[in-house]
Computed example of a mutant assay.
Amino acid sequence: MDQQGKPPAARKAARKDGEGNGQKVVPKDGQHEGRQLARKDRDGGGQRQIALLRGVNVGRAKRIAMADLRQVLGELGFTGARTLLNSGNAVFDCDGLDAAQSSTSMSATRIEEALVLKLGVGSRVTVLDAQQLDDVVADNPLGAIAVDPARLMVSVFSNPADRAKLEPLAHQPWEPEAFALGRWAAYIWCADGVLASRAAAAMGKLLGDGVTTRNWATISKLHALARADA
Protein backbone atom coordinates (compact mmCIF):
# COMPACT_ATOMS: atom_id res chain seq x y z
CA MET A 1 0.00 0.00 0.00
CA ASP A 2 1.23 3.55 -0.74
CA GLN A 3 0.62 6.75 1.22
CA GLN A 4 -2.71 7.20 -0.59
CA GLY A 5 -3.86 3.74 0.46
CA LYS A 6 -3.53 2.22 -3.02
CA PRO A 7 -1.73 -1.04 -3.76
CA PRO A 8 0.95 -0.96 -6.54
CA ALA A 9 -1.44 -2.52 -9.08
CA ALA A 10 -4.01 0.21 -8.45
CA ARG A 11 -1.36 2.92 -8.82
CA LYS A 12 -0.32 1.45 -12.17
CA ALA A 13 -3.91 1.31 -13.39
CA ALA A 14 -4.50 4.89 -12.27
CA ARG A 15 -1.49 6.14 -14.22
CA LYS A 16 -2.68 4.25 -17.29
CA ASP A 17 -6.13 5.80 -17.07
CA GLY A 18 -4.68 9.31 -16.69
CA GLU A 19 -5.60 9.81 -13.03
CA GLY A 20 -3.68 12.63 -11.39
CA ASN A 21 -2.66 14.39 -14.61
CA GLY A 22 -5.93 16.16 -15.36
CA GLN A 23 -6.44 14.08 -18.49
CA LYS A 24 -9.75 13.56 -20.20
CA VAL A 25 -9.89 10.70 -22.68
CA VAL A 26 -12.94 9.54 -24.61
CA PRO A 27 -13.67 5.83 -23.91
CA LYS A 28 -12.28 3.60 -26.62
CA ASP A 29 -15.65 2.12 -27.56
CA GLY A 30 -16.89 5.59 -28.50
CA GLN A 31 -13.81 6.97 -30.20
CA HIS A 32 -14.51 5.78 -33.74
CA GLU A 33 -18.12 6.93 -33.67
CA GLY A 34 -17.08 10.23 -32.10
CA ARG A 35 -14.57 10.94 -34.86
CA GLN A 36 -17.17 10.15 -37.53
CA LEU A 37 -19.61 12.58 -35.90
CA ALA A 38 -16.84 15.16 -35.55
CA ARG A 39 -16.11 15.12 -39.27
CA LYS A 40 -19.82 15.36 -40.05
CA ASP A 41 -20.33 18.26 -37.64
CA ARG A 42 -17.39 20.24 -39.01
CA ASP A 43 -18.78 19.88 -42.53
CA GLY A 44 -22.26 20.87 -41.48
CA GLY A 45 -21.72 24.61 -41.64
CA GLY A 46 -23.35 27.15 -39.36
CA GLN A 47 -24.39 30.78 -39.42
CA ARG A 48 -21.63 32.02 -37.12
CA GLN A 49 -18.07 30.81 -37.56
CA ILE A 50 -14.66 31.46 -36.05
CA ALA A 51 -11.44 31.46 -38.09
CA LEU A 52 -8.02 30.87 -36.55
CA LEU A 53 -5.02 31.74 -38.74
CA ARG A 54 -1.83 29.89 -37.97
CA GLY A 55 1.48 31.69 -37.54
CA VAL A 56 0.54 35.20 -38.67
CA ASN A 57 2.14 38.36 -37.27
CA VAL A 58 4.85 36.39 -35.49
CA GLY A 59 8.08 38.29 -36.03
CA ARG A 60 8.38 39.75 -39.52
CA ALA A 61 6.88 36.82 -41.38
CA LYS A 62 3.28 36.50 -42.57
CA ARG A 63 2.22 40.02 -41.69
CA ILE A 64 -1.52 40.63 -42.02
CA ALA A 65 -3.35 43.75 -40.88
CA MET A 66 -6.59 42.80 -39.20
CA ALA A 67 -8.43 45.42 -41.25
CA ASP A 68 -7.23 43.61 -44.39
CA LEU A 69 -8.41 40.29 -42.97
CA ARG A 70 -11.87 41.72 -42.32
CA GLN A 71 -11.98 43.08 -45.86
CA VAL A 72 -11.03 39.69 -47.31
CA LEU A 73 -13.77 38.01 -45.30
CA GLY A 74 -16.30 40.54 -46.54
CA GLU A 75 -15.26 40.00 -50.16
CA LEU A 76 -15.82 36.26 -49.68
CA GLY A 77 -19.44 36.96 -48.71
CA PHE A 78 -19.09 36.62 -44.94
CA THR A 79 -20.85 39.32 -42.94
CA GLY A 80 -20.24 41.12 -39.66
CA ALA A 81 -16.55 40.19 -39.55
CA ARG A 82 -14.81 41.10 -36.30
CA THR A 83 -11.23 40.38 -35.30
CA LEU A 84 -9.58 39.87 -31.93
CA LEU A 85 -6.01 40.88 -31.10
CA ASN A 86 -3.40 40.77 -33.87
CA SER A 87 -2.86 37.02 -34.11
CA GLY A 88 -5.43 36.19 -36.77
CA ASN A 89 -8.68 35.51 -34.91
CA ALA A 90 -11.95 36.38 -36.63
CA VAL A 91 -15.66 35.91 -35.98
CA PHE A 92 -18.12 36.24 -38.85
CA ASP A 93 -21.54 35.16 -40.10
CA CYS A 94 -22.51 33.11 -43.15
CA ASP A 95 -26.12 34.22 -43.48
CA GLY A 96 -26.01 34.98 -47.19
CA LEU A 97 -24.14 31.85 -48.27
CA ASP A 98 -25.52 28.47 -49.23
CA ALA A 99 -24.51 25.29 -47.41
CA ALA A 100 -21.91 24.32 -50.01
CA GLN A 101 -20.04 27.57 -49.45
CA SER A 102 -20.43 27.82 -45.69
CA SER A 103 -19.36 24.47 -44.25
CA THR A 104 -16.45 24.98 -41.87
CA SER A 105 -14.10 23.00 -44.12
CA MET A 106 -15.08 25.02 -47.21
CA SER A 107 -14.79 28.30 -45.31
CA ALA A 108 -11.25 27.38 -44.26
CA THR A 109 -10.28 26.52 -47.83
CA ARG A 110 -11.79 29.70 -49.27
CA ILE A 111 -10.08 31.90 -46.67
CA GLU A 112 -6.70 30.23 -47.20
CA GLU A 113 -6.92 30.74 -50.97
CA ALA A 114 -8.05 34.36 -50.61
CA LEU A 115 -5.17 35.19 -48.25
CA VAL A 116 -2.70 34.02 -50.89
CA LEU A 117 -4.44 35.68 -53.85
CA LYS A 118 -5.32 38.99 -52.21
CA LEU A 119 -2.64 39.48 -49.55
CA GLY A 120 0.18 37.22 -50.71
CA VAL A 121 0.26 35.37 -47.39
CA GLY A 122 0.11 31.61 -46.96
CA SER A 123 -1.41 30.55 -43.65
CA ARG A 124 -3.16 27.40 -42.48
CA VAL A 125 -6.71 28.34 -41.46
CA THR A 126 -8.90 26.40 -39.05
CA VAL A 127 -12.60 27.23 -38.84
CA LEU A 128 -15.03 26.28 -36.07
CA ASP A 129 -18.71 27.01 -35.83
CA ALA A 130 -20.06 28.67 -32.69
CA GLN A 131 -21.24 25.40 -31.13
CA GLN A 132 -17.82 23.83 -31.61
CA LEU A 133 -16.19 26.78 -29.87
CA ASP A 134 -18.69 26.28 -27.04
CA ASP A 135 -17.47 22.68 -26.87
CA VAL A 136 -13.82 23.75 -26.78
CA VAL A 137 -14.54 25.90 -23.73
CA ALA A 138 -16.74 23.30 -22.03
CA ASP A 139 -14.29 20.43 -22.62
CA ASN A 140 -11.35 22.08 -20.84
CA PRO A 141 -10.33 19.62 -18.09
CA LEU A 142 -7.29 21.54 -16.87
CA GLY A 143 -8.88 24.65 -15.41
CA ALA A 144 -8.30 23.51 -11.84
CA ILE A 145 -4.53 23.25 -12.24
CA ALA A 146 -3.89 25.99 -14.81
CA VAL A 147 -3.31 28.97 -12.54
CA ASP A 148 -2.15 31.21 -15.40
CA PRO A 149 -4.38 31.38 -18.52
CA ALA A 150 -1.40 32.55 -20.58
CA ARG A 151 0.31 29.18 -20.01
CA LEU A 152 -2.73 27.01 -20.73
CA MET A 153 -2.54 26.26 -24.45
CA VAL A 154 -5.53 25.16 -26.54
CA SER A 155 -4.51 23.53 -29.83
CA VAL A 156 -7.45 23.22 -32.22
CA PHE A 157 -7.34 20.39 -34.75
CA SER A 158 -7.48 21.31 -38.43
CA ASN A 159 -8.73 17.77 -39.03
CA PRO A 160 -10.59 16.24 -36.06
CA ALA A 161 -9.51 12.76 -37.18
CA ASP A 162 -5.96 13.73 -36.12
CA ARG A 163 -7.12 13.56 -32.52
CA ALA A 164 -6.43 9.82 -32.56
CA LYS A 165 -2.74 10.46 -33.24
CA LEU A 166 -2.45 12.29 -29.92
CA GLU A 167 -4.14 9.69 -27.73
CA PRO A 168 -0.81 8.09 -26.68
CA LEU A 169 0.32 11.47 -25.31
CA ALA A 170 -2.73 11.60 -23.05
CA HIS A 171 -1.51 8.46 -21.25
CA GLN A 172 2.02 9.68 -20.58
CA PRO A 173 3.16 11.37 -17.35
CA TRP A 174 4.00 15.03 -18.00
CA GLU A 175 4.23 16.45 -14.47
CA PRO A 176 4.51 19.30 -13.68
CA GLU A 177 2.82 19.79 -17.06
CA ALA A 178 -0.47 18.22 -18.10
CA PHE A 179 -1.92 17.12 -21.42
CA ALA A 180 -5.56 16.34 -22.20
CA LEU A 181 -7.85 15.86 -25.19
CA GLY A 182 -11.26 17.30 -25.94
CA ARG A 183 -13.51 16.83 -28.94
CA TRP A 184 -11.97 19.55 -31.10
CA ALA A 185 -8.73 20.46 -29.35
CA ALA A 186 -5.83 19.38 -27.17
CA TYR A 187 -5.14 21.18 -23.88
CA ILE A 188 -1.62 21.66 -22.55
CA TRP A 189 -0.72 23.14 -19.19
CA CYS A 190 2.78 24.55 -19.70
CA ALA A 191 3.87 24.86 -16.09
CA ASP A 192 7.34 26.19 -16.95
CA GLY A 193 6.31 28.17 -20.02
CA VAL A 194 5.45 27.30 -23.60
CA LEU A 195 9.02 27.17 -24.91
CA ALA A 196 10.01 24.69 -22.19
CA SER A 197 6.96 22.45 -22.64
CA ARG A 198 7.81 18.83 -23.43
CA ALA A 199 4.15 18.03 -24.12
CA ALA A 200 3.83 20.86 -26.65
CA ALA A 201 7.02 19.72 -28.40
CA ALA A 202 5.75 16.13 -28.58
CA MET A 203 2.45 17.25 -30.08
CA GLY A 204 4.26 19.40 -32.62
CA LYS A 205 6.30 16.42 -33.81
CA LEU A 206 3.13 14.40 -34.36
CA LEU A 207 0.88 16.99 -36.02
CA GLY A 208 3.05 19.90 -37.18
CA ASP A 209 0.75 22.52 -38.70
CA GLY A 210 -2.26 20.25 -38.14
CA VAL A 211 -3.13 22.30 -35.06
CA THR A 212 -3.57 26.01 -34.45
CA THR A 213 -2.83 27.10 -30.90
CA ARG A 214 -4.13 29.92 -28.72
CA ASN A 215 -3.80 30.43 -24.98
CA TRP A 216 -6.82 30.15 -22.72
CA ALA A 217 -7.09 33.90 -22.27
CA THR A 218 -7.49 34.37 -26.03
CA ILE A 219 -9.92 31.46 -26.36
CA SER A 220 -12.08 32.93 -23.59
CA LYS A 221 -12.16 36.37 -25.23
CA LEU A 222 -12.90 34.83 -28.62
CA HIS A 223 -15.73 32.80 -27.13
CA ALA A 224 -17.28 35.92 -25.62
CA LEU A 225 -16.97 37.71 -28.98
CA ALA A 226 -18.57 34.80 -30.82
CA ARG A 227 -21.49 34.70 -28.40
CA ALA A 228 -22.11 38.46 -28.46
CA ASP A 229 -25.42 39.19 -30.22
CA ALA A 230 -25.75 35.48 -31.06
Rank of each mutant, 00 (worst) to 15 (best):
S105C: 10
N86Y: 07
A144D: 12
R70N: 03
V211S: 08
L84E: 03
A61C: 05
F179V: 03
D162Y: 09
V116S: 07
Q71W: 13
I145D: 00
A186R: 04
R70S: 08
R54Q: 07
L119Q: 04
A230M: 07
G208V: 10
N89K: 01
K40Y: 09
V136N: 01
A100S: 14
A228R: 13
P8Y: 10
R48W: 02
D17Q: 15
G59Y: 12
R35Q: 04
T109K: 15
A146P: 01
P8A: 08
N159I: 06
H171A: 07
K118W: 06
G122S: 15
K12F: 01
R11E: 12
E19Y: 14
G77N: 06
E19H: 14
V136Y: 01
W216L: 01
M66K: 05
M153V: 11
T212F: 00
A150F: 09
D162M: 07
V25I: 15
L166N: 07
A150E: 09
A180K: 00
G204H: 14
P149L: 04
G74R: 05
C190H: 06
L207R: 13
D139C: 10
D209Q: 14
L206P: 05
A180I: 03
S103F: 13
L152I: 05
T126W: 04
A38Y: 07
L225A: 04
A196S: 14
G77W: 09
M1N: 08
D192C: 04
D95V: 11
G80Q: 08
D229C: 00
L85Y: 03
A10C: 08
L37N: 10
G74K: 11
G193F: 10
S220Y: 00
L84I: 01
D129P: 09
G80D: 04
E75K: 06
A230D: 05
E167T: 07
E175Q: 12
C94F: 09
